[in-house]
Simulated scan of single mutants.
Amino acid sequence: MADINEWVKEEWKQTTTARERIKEVLVETTEYMSAAGIAERALTSEPTTRKYLEELVDDGFGVTAQDGRTTTYKRHEGRLIDERIEELRTTCTQQELIDGIRGMKETLEAFRETYDADGPEEAVMELAAGDEGWADIGRWRGTRRNLAIAQAALQVDEAHRLAEA
Score class of each variant (00 low, 15 high):
120 P>D: 01
43 L>A: 15
86 E>Q: 03
96 E>M: 03
75 R>P: 00
91 T>M: 02
106 E>W: 01
91 T>L: 01
44 T>M: 09
128 A>I: 01
111 F>C: 11
42 A>R: 03
58 D>A: 15
128 A>Q: 08
38 I>Q: 04
99 D>P: 03
83 E>V: 04
38 I>N: 00
37 G>Q: 06
71 T>K: 12
65 A>H: 07
85 I>F: 08
91 T>N: 10
105 K>I: 05
50 R>W: 05
87 E>K: 15
69 R>W: 02
88 L>I: 03
63 V>N: 01
96 E>W: 13
44 T>I: 01
101 I>M: 07
125 M>T: 05
53 L>V: 12
73 Y>Q: 05
54 E>S: 12
105 K>A: 03
114 T>P: 03
58 D>G: 06
131 D>W: 04
111 F>G: 08
111 F>Y: 13
54 E>Y: 02
114 T>S: 14
82 D>K: 14
62 G>C: 08
49 T>N: 06
85 I>C: 00
71 T>D: 10
48 T>Q: 05
85 I>T: 00
103 G>L: 07
48 T>Y: 02
112 R>I: 06
68 G>R: 11
125 M>C: 02
102 R>S: 02
63 V>D: 04
108 L>A: 11
79 R>T: 03
65 A>L: 04
101 I>V: 06
103 G>C: 00
112 R>C: 13
105 K>V: 03
105 K>H: 11
37 G>V: 06
